[in-house]
Design a protein around this nucleic acid. Structure first.
Lengths: 185, 185
DNA sequence: CTCTTTGTGTAACAATCGATACACATATTG
DNA sequence: CAATATGTGTATCGATTGTTACACAAAGAG
Protein backbone atom coordinates (compact mmCIF):
# COMPACT_ATOMS: atom_id res chain seq x y z
CA UNK A 1 0.00 0.00 0.00
CA UNK A 2 2.71 2.46 0.95
CA UNK A 3 4.65 1.70 -2.24
CA UNK A 4 1.61 2.32 -4.46
CA UNK A 5 0.91 5.41 -2.35
CA UNK A 6 4.37 6.81 -3.00
CA UNK A 7 4.87 5.83 -6.64
CA UNK A 8 1.42 5.26 -8.10
CA UNK A 9 0.10 2.19 -9.88
CA UNK A 10 2.33 2.48 -12.92
CA UNK A 11 5.38 3.73 -11.04
CA UNK A 12 5.44 0.80 -8.64
CA UNK A 13 6.97 -2.07 -10.59
CA UNK A 14 6.63 -5.74 -9.72
CA UNK A 15 10.33 -5.70 -8.88
CA UNK A 16 9.71 -2.87 -6.38
CA UNK A 17 6.69 -4.64 -4.88
CA UNK A 18 8.35 -8.03 -4.44
CA UNK A 19 11.41 -6.32 -2.98
CA UNK A 20 9.53 -4.46 -0.22
CA UNK A 21 7.34 -7.50 0.46
CA UNK A 22 10.36 -9.77 0.72
CA UNK A 23 8.85 -12.40 -1.57
CA UNK A 24 9.22 -13.57 -5.17
CA UNK A 25 6.80 -12.96 -8.03
CA UNK A 26 5.12 -16.43 -7.90
CA UNK A 27 4.23 -15.94 -4.25
CA UNK A 28 2.72 -12.53 -4.96
CA UNK A 29 0.62 -13.88 -7.82
CA UNK A 30 -0.49 -16.88 -5.74
CA UNK A 31 -1.61 -14.54 -2.97
CA UNK A 32 -3.17 -11.67 -4.93
CA UNK A 33 -3.71 -12.84 -8.52
CA UNK A 34 -2.31 -9.81 -10.33
CA UNK A 35 -0.79 -6.40 -9.87
CA UNK A 36 -4.18 -4.86 -10.49
CA UNK A 37 -5.88 -6.99 -7.81
CA UNK A 38 -3.07 -6.15 -5.40
CA UNK A 39 -3.61 -2.46 -6.03
CA UNK A 40 -7.33 -2.84 -5.35
CA UNK A 41 -6.57 -4.47 -2.00
CA UNK A 42 -4.08 -1.70 -1.31
CA UNK A 43 -6.68 1.00 -1.99
CA UNK A 44 -9.19 -0.82 0.19
CA UNK A 45 -6.64 -0.90 2.98
CA UNK A 46 -5.92 2.77 2.42
CA UNK A 47 -9.60 3.63 2.80
CA UNK A 48 -9.84 1.55 5.96
CA UNK A 49 -6.77 3.13 7.56
CA UNK A 50 -5.98 6.62 6.24
CA UNK A 51 -9.48 7.21 4.91
CA UNK A 52 -11.40 6.77 8.14
CA UNK A 53 -9.46 9.53 9.88
CA UNK A 54 -10.11 11.93 7.03
CA UNK A 55 -13.84 11.22 6.87
CA UNK A 56 -14.51 10.67 10.57
CA UNK A 57 -15.48 14.22 11.39
CA UNK A 58 -17.98 14.31 8.54
CA UNK A 59 -20.43 12.15 10.50
CA UNK A 60 -19.31 12.86 14.03
CA UNK A 61 -19.42 16.65 14.02
CA UNK A 62 -22.47 18.38 15.39
CA UNK A 63 -22.74 20.99 12.65
CA UNK A 64 -22.21 20.77 8.91
CA UNK A 65 -19.60 23.49 9.10
CA UNK A 66 -17.58 21.61 11.69
CA UNK A 67 -17.98 18.48 9.58
CA UNK A 68 -16.53 20.10 6.47
CA UNK A 69 -13.83 21.98 8.37
CA UNK A 70 -12.77 18.77 10.12
CA UNK A 71 -12.70 16.96 6.78
CA UNK A 72 -10.32 19.55 5.31
CA UNK A 73 -8.12 19.81 8.39
CA UNK A 74 -7.81 16.04 8.73
CA UNK A 75 -6.89 15.92 5.05
CA UNK A 76 -4.22 18.57 5.57
CA UNK A 77 -2.77 16.58 8.44
CA UNK A 78 -2.89 13.22 6.64
CA UNK A 79 -1.41 14.60 3.41
CA UNK A 80 1.62 16.04 5.22
CA UNK A 81 2.20 13.40 7.88
CA UNK A 82 5.90 12.78 8.44
CA UNK A 83 6.89 9.29 7.38
CA UNK A 84 3.91 8.87 5.07
CA UNK A 85 3.92 9.58 1.33
CA UNK A 86 2.53 13.07 0.69
CA UNK A 87 -0.97 13.43 -0.72
CA UNK A 88 -3.77 10.95 -1.26
CA UNK A 89 -3.47 7.52 -2.87
CA UNK A 90 -6.96 7.77 -4.31
CA UNK A 91 -6.12 11.03 -6.06
CA UNK A 92 -2.52 10.36 -7.11
CA UNK A 93 -2.60 6.59 -7.67
CA UNK A 94 -3.47 6.64 -11.38
CA UNK A 95 -4.42 9.78 -13.30
CA UNK A 96 -3.15 9.09 -16.82
CA UNK A 97 -4.90 6.15 -18.48
CA UNK A 98 -2.62 4.11 -20.72
CA UNK A 99 -4.29 0.85 -21.67
CA UNK A 100 -2.78 -1.17 -18.85
CA UNK A 101 -4.39 0.78 -16.03
CA UNK A 102 -7.77 1.70 -17.51
CA UNK A 103 -9.71 -0.33 -14.94
CA UNK A 104 -7.66 1.15 -12.10
CA UNK A 105 -8.24 4.69 -13.34
CA UNK A 106 -11.96 4.10 -13.51
CA UNK A 107 -12.01 2.51 -10.05
CA UNK A 108 -10.22 5.48 -8.52
CA UNK A 109 -12.44 7.89 -10.40
CA UNK A 110 -15.51 6.25 -8.89
CA UNK A 111 -14.01 6.46 -5.42
CA UNK A 112 -13.38 10.17 -5.93
CA UNK A 113 -16.91 10.64 -7.24
CA UNK A 114 -18.20 8.82 -4.16
CA UNK A 115 -16.41 11.39 -2.04
CA UNK A 116 -18.44 14.17 -3.63
CA UNK A 117 -21.64 12.21 -3.03
CA UNK A 118 -20.73 11.56 0.59
CA UNK A 119 -20.08 15.23 1.25
CA UNK A 120 -23.26 16.27 -0.56
CA UNK A 121 -25.27 13.76 1.50
CA UNK A 122 -23.95 15.32 4.68
CA UNK A 123 -24.94 18.78 3.49
CA UNK A 124 -28.38 17.59 2.44
CA UNK A 125 -28.87 16.08 5.88
CA UNK A 126 -28.06 19.46 7.38
CA UNK A 127 -30.68 21.03 5.13
CA UNK A 128 -33.30 18.45 6.19
CA UNK A 129 -32.49 19.10 9.82
CA UNK A 130 -33.02 22.81 9.32
CA UNK A 131 -29.42 23.70 10.00
CA UNK A 132 -28.84 25.01 6.48
CA UNK A 133 -31.20 26.97 4.26
CA UNK A 134 -33.25 24.83 1.90
CA UNK A 135 -32.25 26.69 -1.25
CA UNK A 136 -28.48 26.12 -1.16
CA UNK A 137 -26.77 24.09 -3.90
CA UNK A 138 -25.41 21.11 -1.97
CA UNK A 139 -23.92 19.54 -5.08
CA UNK A 140 -21.98 22.68 -5.99
CA UNK A 141 -20.73 23.14 -2.43
CA UNK A 142 -19.63 19.51 -2.25
CA UNK A 143 -17.82 19.80 -5.57
CA UNK A 144 -16.01 22.91 -4.34
CA UNK A 145 -14.74 21.38 -1.11
CA UNK A 146 -13.72 18.10 -2.74
CA UNK A 147 -11.91 20.08 -5.43
CA UNK A 148 -9.94 21.90 -2.73
CA UNK A 149 -9.07 18.62 -1.05
CA UNK A 150 -7.89 17.16 -4.35
CA UNK A 151 -5.78 20.23 -5.01
CA UNK A 152 -4.23 19.74 -1.59
CA UNK A 153 -2.90 16.37 -2.81
CA UNK A 154 -1.06 18.16 -5.61
CA UNK A 155 0.28 20.70 -3.16
CA UNK A 156 1.40 17.95 -0.79
CA UNK A 157 3.15 16.10 -3.60
CA UNK A 158 4.94 19.34 -4.36
CA UNK A 159 6.27 19.42 -0.80
CA UNK A 160 3.76 21.73 0.86
CA UNK A 161 4.05 21.92 4.64
CA UNK A 162 1.19 21.16 7.01
CA UNK A 163 0.80 24.90 7.56
CA UNK A 164 0.53 25.55 3.85
CA UNK A 165 -2.14 22.89 3.43
CA UNK A 166 -4.01 24.42 6.35
CA UNK A 167 -3.85 27.76 4.55
CA UNK A 168 -5.72 26.18 1.65
CA UNK A 169 -8.22 24.62 4.04
CA UNK A 170 -8.76 27.90 5.85
CA UNK A 171 -9.25 29.68 2.55
CA UNK A 172 -11.93 27.18 1.60
CA UNK A 173 -13.68 27.59 4.95
CA UNK A 174 -13.69 31.35 4.43
CA UNK A 175 -16.30 30.70 1.74
CA UNK A 176 -18.66 28.87 4.08
CA UNK A 177 -20.81 31.75 5.27
CA UNK A 178 -21.26 33.04 1.75
CA UNK A 179 -22.06 29.60 0.30
CA UNK A 180 -24.64 28.92 2.99
CA UNK A 181 -25.98 32.46 3.24
CA UNK A 182 -29.52 32.76 4.47
CA UNK A 183 -29.35 29.65 6.58
CA UNK A 184 -30.76 29.74 10.14
CA UNK A 185 -28.22 30.19 12.91
CA UNK B 1 2.18 18.60 -26.94
CA UNK B 2 -1.36 17.30 -27.15
CA UNK B 3 -0.20 13.71 -26.71
CA UNK B 4 1.80 14.53 -23.58
CA UNK B 5 -1.17 16.60 -22.42
CA UNK B 6 -3.53 13.65 -22.76
CA UNK B 7 -1.32 10.82 -21.54
CA UNK B 8 1.40 12.42 -19.41
CA UNK B 9 5.16 12.10 -19.79
CA UNK B 10 5.35 8.43 -18.87
CA UNK B 11 2.12 7.45 -20.58
CA UNK B 12 3.15 8.87 -23.95
CA UNK B 13 5.52 6.30 -25.45
CA UNK B 14 8.01 6.96 -28.20
CA UNK B 15 5.86 4.75 -30.43
CA UNK B 16 2.86 7.00 -29.72
CA UNK B 17 4.87 10.16 -30.32
CA UNK B 18 6.45 9.06 -33.60
CA UNK B 19 3.05 7.82 -34.78
CA UNK B 20 1.23 11.13 -34.28
CA UNK B 21 4.20 13.08 -35.63
CA UNK B 22 4.39 10.90 -38.71
CA UNK B 23 8.13 10.40 -38.37
CA UNK B 24 10.53 7.69 -37.23
CA UNK B 25 12.54 7.62 -34.00
CA UNK B 26 15.85 8.78 -35.57
CA UNK B 27 14.19 11.91 -36.94
CA UNK B 28 12.66 12.70 -33.55
CA UNK B 29 15.99 12.32 -31.79
CA UNK B 30 17.78 14.38 -34.44
CA UNK B 31 15.23 17.18 -33.99
CA UNK B 32 14.73 17.17 -30.21
CA UNK B 33 17.55 15.14 -28.66
CA UNK B 34 15.51 13.06 -26.26
CA UNK B 35 12.01 12.37 -25.02
CA UNK B 36 12.73 14.58 -22.03
CA UNK B 37 13.83 17.51 -24.19
CA UNK B 38 10.77 17.06 -26.38
CA UNK B 39 8.54 17.22 -23.31
CA UNK B 40 10.21 20.44 -22.21
CA UNK B 41 9.50 22.01 -25.58
CA UNK B 42 5.94 20.73 -25.34
CA UNK B 43 5.44 22.35 -21.93
CA UNK B 44 6.94 25.59 -23.21
CA UNK B 45 4.51 25.52 -26.11
CA UNK B 46 1.67 24.78 -23.71
CA UNK B 47 2.55 27.81 -21.62
CA UNK B 48 2.72 29.99 -24.71
CA UNK B 49 -0.63 28.81 -26.05
CA UNK B 50 -3.01 27.50 -23.37
CA UNK B 51 -1.20 29.28 -20.55
CA UNK B 52 -1.53 32.82 -21.80
CA UNK B 53 -5.31 32.62 -21.91
CA UNK B 54 -5.47 31.34 -18.35
CA UNK B 55 -3.16 34.01 -16.96
CA UNK B 56 -4.19 36.93 -19.17
CA UNK B 57 -6.80 38.35 -16.84
CA UNK B 58 -4.37 38.35 -13.95
CA UNK B 59 -2.56 41.38 -15.33
CA UNK B 60 -5.30 42.90 -17.47
CA UNK B 61 -8.09 43.13 -14.91
CA UNK B 62 -8.67 46.40 -13.11
CA UNK B 63 -9.20 44.90 -9.67
CA UNK B 64 -7.51 42.02 -7.88
CA UNK B 65 -10.84 40.31 -7.45
CA UNK B 66 -11.56 40.42 -11.17
CA UNK B 67 -8.02 39.19 -11.80
CA UNK B 68 -8.43 36.12 -9.61
CA UNK B 69 -11.97 35.41 -10.77
CA UNK B 70 -10.88 35.64 -14.39
CA UNK B 71 -7.97 33.32 -13.68
CA UNK B 72 -10.30 30.68 -12.26
CA UNK B 73 -12.97 31.06 -14.93
CA UNK B 74 -10.43 30.90 -17.74
CA UNK B 75 -9.02 27.77 -16.12
CA UNK B 76 -12.47 26.21 -15.95
CA UNK B 77 -13.00 26.95 -19.64
CA UNK B 78 -9.57 25.72 -20.73
CA UNK B 79 -9.75 22.53 -18.65
CA UNK B 80 -13.08 21.50 -20.19
CA UNK B 81 -12.62 22.73 -23.75
CA UNK B 82 -14.14 20.29 -26.25
CA UNK B 83 -11.46 18.69 -28.40
CA UNK B 84 -8.69 19.41 -25.91
CA UNK B 85 -7.45 16.94 -23.27
CA UNK B 86 -9.13 17.71 -19.93
CA UNK B 87 -7.12 19.42 -17.19
CA UNK B 88 -3.71 21.06 -17.19
CA UNK B 89 -0.52 19.63 -18.65
CA UNK B 90 1.59 21.33 -16.00
CA UNK B 91 -0.42 19.67 -13.22
CA UNK B 92 -1.07 16.26 -14.75
CA UNK B 93 2.05 15.79 -16.87
CA UNK B 94 4.18 13.98 -14.29
CA UNK B 95 3.18 13.56 -10.64
CA UNK B 96 4.78 10.24 -9.65
CA UNK B 97 8.57 10.33 -9.81
CA UNK B 98 10.12 7.06 -10.94
CA UNK B 99 13.78 7.55 -11.74
CA UNK B 100 13.27 8.20 -15.43
CA UNK B 101 11.23 11.37 -15.00
CA UNK B 102 12.79 12.96 -11.93
CA UNK B 103 13.97 16.03 -13.83
CA UNK B 104 10.57 16.43 -15.49
CA UNK B 105 8.76 16.20 -12.15
CA UNK B 106 11.00 18.85 -10.68
CA UNK B 107 10.58 21.10 -13.71
CA UNK B 108 6.80 20.90 -13.51
CA UNK B 109 6.90 21.44 -9.76
CA UNK B 110 8.83 24.67 -10.26
CA UNK B 111 6.32 25.84 -12.85
CA UNK B 112 3.49 25.18 -10.40
CA UNK B 113 5.38 27.00 -7.68
CA UNK B 114 5.88 29.91 -10.05
CA UNK B 115 2.11 30.08 -10.45
CA UNK B 116 1.72 30.67 -6.72
CA UNK B 117 4.36 33.39 -6.85
CA UNK B 118 2.70 35.07 -9.81
CA UNK B 119 -0.66 35.17 -8.08
CA UNK B 120 0.89 36.41 -4.86
CA UNK B 121 2.71 39.15 -6.73
CA UNK B 122 -0.59 40.35 -8.19
CA UNK B 123 -2.16 40.43 -4.74
CA UNK B 124 0.80 42.29 -3.26
CA UNK B 125 0.51 44.86 -6.03
CA UNK B 126 -3.12 45.38 -5.07
CA UNK B 127 -2.02 45.92 -1.49
CA UNK B 128 0.61 48.47 -2.55
CA UNK B 129 -1.97 50.29 -4.63
CA UNK B 130 -4.28 50.50 -1.64
CA UNK B 131 -6.95 48.26 -3.17
CA UNK B 132 -6.51 45.57 -0.53
CA UNK B 133 -5.86 45.98 3.19
CA UNK B 134 -2.18 45.87 4.13
CA UNK B 135 -2.53 43.12 6.71
CA UNK B 136 -3.87 40.34 4.49
CA UNK B 137 -1.81 37.16 3.94
CA UNK B 138 -1.11 37.29 0.20
CA UNK B 139 0.86 34.06 0.27
CA UNK B 140 -1.96 32.11 1.94
CA UNK B 141 -4.56 33.54 -0.42
CA UNK B 142 -2.42 32.70 -3.45
CA UNK B 143 -1.88 29.14 -2.17
CA UNK B 144 -5.63 28.74 -1.71
CA UNK B 145 -6.60 29.84 -5.21
CA UNK B 146 -3.83 27.87 -6.90
CA UNK B 147 -4.87 24.82 -4.89
CA UNK B 148 -8.42 25.19 -6.19
CA UNK B 149 -7.15 25.51 -9.75
CA UNK B 150 -5.02 22.39 -9.35
CA UNK B 151 -7.99 20.50 -7.94
CA UNK B 152 -9.95 21.56 -11.00
CA UNK B 153 -7.46 19.62 -13.13
CA UNK B 154 -8.30 16.46 -11.20
CA UNK B 155 -11.99 17.18 -11.59
CA UNK B 156 -11.57 17.78 -15.31
CA UNK B 157 -9.65 14.55 -15.74
CA UNK B 158 -12.56 12.83 -14.01
CA UNK B 159 -14.90 14.18 -16.67
CA UNK B 160 -16.27 17.25 -14.92
CA UNK B 161 -18.33 19.55 -17.14
CA UNK B 162 -17.59 23.21 -17.65
CA UNK B 163 -20.48 24.03 -15.32
CA UNK B 164 -19.07 21.80 -12.61
CA UNK B 165 -15.64 23.44 -12.85
CA UNK B 166 -17.32 26.81 -12.64
CA UNK B 167 -19.06 25.65 -9.47
CA UNK B 168 -15.63 25.07 -7.93
CA UNK B 169 -14.45 28.48 -9.18
CA UNK B 170 -17.55 30.21 -7.81
CA UNK B 171 -17.07 28.46 -4.48
CA UNK B 172 -13.53 29.75 -4.30
CA UNK B 173 -14.63 33.29 -5.15
CA UNK B 174 -17.19 33.11 -2.36
CA UNK B 175 -14.23 33.27 0.02
CA UNK B 176 -12.88 36.51 -1.43
CA UNK B 177 -14.64 39.03 0.80
CA UNK B 178 -13.73 37.10 3.90
CA UNK B 179 -10.10 36.60 2.86
CA UNK B 180 -9.68 40.30 2.06
CA UNK B 181 -11.86 41.60 4.90
CA UNK B 182 -11.07 45.07 6.07
CA UNK B 183 -9.80 46.23 2.70
CA UNK B 184 -10.91 49.61 1.37
CA UNK B 185 -13.77 49.59 -1.09
C1' DC C 1 8.50 -44.02 6.80
C1' DT C 2 5.86 -42.89 2.36
C1' DC C 3 2.80 -40.12 -0.11
C1' DT C 4 0.63 -35.98 -1.22
C1' DT C 5 0.03 -31.24 -1.00
C1' DT C 6 1.52 -26.58 -0.64
C1' DG C 7 4.57 -23.00 -1.46
C1' DT C 8 9.01 -20.94 -2.83
C1' DG C 9 13.36 -19.72 -6.03
C1' DT C 10 15.22 -19.74 -10.24
C1' DA C 11 14.87 -18.66 -14.62
C1' DA C 12 12.74 -17.15 -18.43
C1' DC C 13 8.64 -15.81 -21.11
C1' DA C 14 6.72 -12.37 -24.86
C1' DA C 15 6.06 -7.54 -25.08
C1' DT C 16 7.38 -2.97 -24.71
C1' DC C 17 10.42 0.70 -23.04
C1' DG C 18 13.73 4.70 -24.73
C1' DA C 19 17.39 5.11 -27.75
C1' DT C 20 20.74 3.95 -32.03
C1' DA C 21 23.72 1.73 -35.87
C1' DC C 22 23.76 1.59 -40.35
C1' DA C 23 22.75 1.91 -45.02
C1' DC C 24 20.15 4.34 -48.40
C1' DA C 25 17.89 8.33 -50.46
C1' DT C 26 17.70 13.13 -51.01
C1' DA C 27 19.38 17.73 -51.38
C1' DT C 28 22.80 21.12 -51.55
C1' DT C 29 27.38 22.70 -53.11
C1' DG C 30 31.28 23.29 -56.15
C1' DC D 1 28.03 16.76 -63.92
C1' DA D 2 30.46 14.86 -59.41
C1' DA D 3 31.04 15.38 -54.43
C1' DT D 4 29.48 16.13 -50.06
C1' DA D 5 26.40 16.98 -46.43
C1' DT D 6 21.77 16.11 -44.43
C1' DG D 7 17.93 13.43 -43.17
C1' DT D 8 14.96 9.25 -43.32
C1' DG D 9 13.63 3.87 -42.85
C1' DT D 10 14.66 -0.36 -41.36
C1' DA D 11 16.00 -2.98 -37.99
C1' DT D 12 17.65 -3.70 -33.62
C1' DC D 13 19.97 -2.53 -29.34
C1' DG D 14 20.03 -3.67 -24.04
C1' DA D 15 16.94 -2.97 -20.31
C1' DT D 16 12.69 -3.47 -18.05
C1' DT D 17 7.67 -4.41 -18.05
C1' DG D 18 4.03 -7.90 -15.93
C1' DT D 19 3.59 -12.67 -15.82
C1' DT D 20 4.45 -17.70 -15.64
C1' DA D 21 6.64 -22.66 -16.37
C1' DC D 22 9.11 -25.74 -13.82
C1' DA D 23 11.71 -28.11 -10.56
C1' DC D 24 12.75 -28.42 -5.81
C1' DA D 25 11.95 -28.08 -0.76
C1' DA D 26 9.16 -28.10 3.20
C1' DA D 27 5.35 -29.78 5.71
C1' DG D 28 1.29 -32.41 6.91
C1' DA D 29 -1.44 -37.08 6.38
C1' DG D 30 -1.83 -41.92 6.47
Amino acid sequence: MRLFWAKGFDGASMADLTAVMGINPPSLYAAFGSKEALFREATDLYSETEGVGIWRSLHQSATARQAVEGFLRESAAAFSRAGDPPGCLIVLGALNANGNNAAICEDLRQRREANVAELRTRLEAAVREGELRAGIDCEAIAVFYVTVQQGMSIQARDGASHARLLAAADGAMAAWDSLTAGSPR
